[in-house]
């Protein structure tokens, strides 16, 4: 295949993917208000996604907070600013690392699971069976997962934020001999509610994004079990890329709106 043909094929596939994701998003929005509500499915998905993601998110946040504190303390000591480790850790975690890392780790795990489940249903015609029975598959399979993600992602992100700050404190106090009271005092002085809410808003958007990517790749699965493997792998990569790229635009937008 020549370079030109490769670029043409890739461009076409990318355009189709974005188009398909956009159409699915529109379909989900259209179905949000339609009956039935399937609230028991939303509750089940909250349980599924929350339980699946909690340990991963909290562990990553703890060590991220610790690393951040360690790096900041060592380097800020050179300027005599070691006492300001708290705000640096807090701002980094609350505004960026909390929502982004949670979305990449939890999102990758949750979305690949969704892709595998829906993809398997697709290749075995279970989704067609649902349609033939007269069940709205978008409403039954996708909307509950999306609603659950919109609730779980912010909650897990807030938990990860808290654990990350505690991780930073552990290193500051026990490794760098920064006073614990000073650590929290400088955080409460320099960090405002806006910093916290920025991260929470990002986590809501990331939750929607990763769930829709997972669902779309599952529904678009073709080619039996081999295709299912390809879709699941693609989901992990696309979730990471999607979160990182959309984070830039979200940051720009939130700074424009709230700064």
């Amino acid at each position: 295949m020549t370079a030109l043909a490769y670029i043409r094929t890739q461009s076409r596939e990318t355009a189709l993917w974005y188009g398909g994701l956009g159409l699915l998003t529109m379909s989900v929005v259209r179905n949000l208000a339609l009956p039935p509500a399937y609230l028991w499915l939303v509750a089940r998905e909250i349980d599924n996604i929350g339980v699946r993601s909690l340990v991963v998110a909290v562990t990553a946040a703890l060590f991220t907070g610790m690393v951040l504190a360690l790096q900041s303390a060592v380097n800020m000591a050179r300027f005599g600013a070691e006492n300001y480790v708290g705000p640096v850790v807090a701002l980094s975690i609350l505004r960026e690392l909390g929502p982004v890392l949670t979305a990449i780790l939890v999102g990758g795990k949750v979305a690949s699971g969704i892709t595998a489940e829906l993809g398997s249903m697709k290749v075995t015609e279970q989704i067609d069976a649902m349609r033939a029975i007269g069940v709205n598959y978008v409403k039954r399979l996708i909307v509950p997962r999306l609603l659950a993600a919109l609730i779980v992602f912010p909650v897990v992100t807030v938990l990860a934020d808290g654990v990350g700050l505690v991780g930073g404190m552990l290193i500051s106090v026990f490794d760098r001999n920064v006073d614990g009271y000073l650590y929290w005092n400088t955080i409460s002085y320099w960090v405002v509610m806006r910093d916290f809410l920025t991260g929470v808003i990002k986590s809501v958007v990331f939750g929607a994004l990763v769930t829709l990517i997972g669902c779309y790749n599952g529904l678009a699965t073709e080619g039996g079990t081999e295709g299912l493997g390809r879709s699941t792998t693609a989901t992990v990569v696309q979730v990471a890329m999607g979160v990182i790229i959309s984070d830039f635009f979200l940051t720009k937008l939130l700074l424009f709106l709230f700064w």
Binding site: Q126, D128, R131, G134, N136
Partner: peptide
């Protein structure tokens, strides 16, 4: 649209070649 066909499909039955049971 899919949502508009659903009430009609509920009046019909479809038996798939591979049965397509919910596993």
């Amino acid at each position: 649209r899919e949502e508009q066909i659903l009430p009609l499909r509920r009046r019909a039955g479809f038996v798939f070649q591979g049965a397509a049971l919910f596993d």
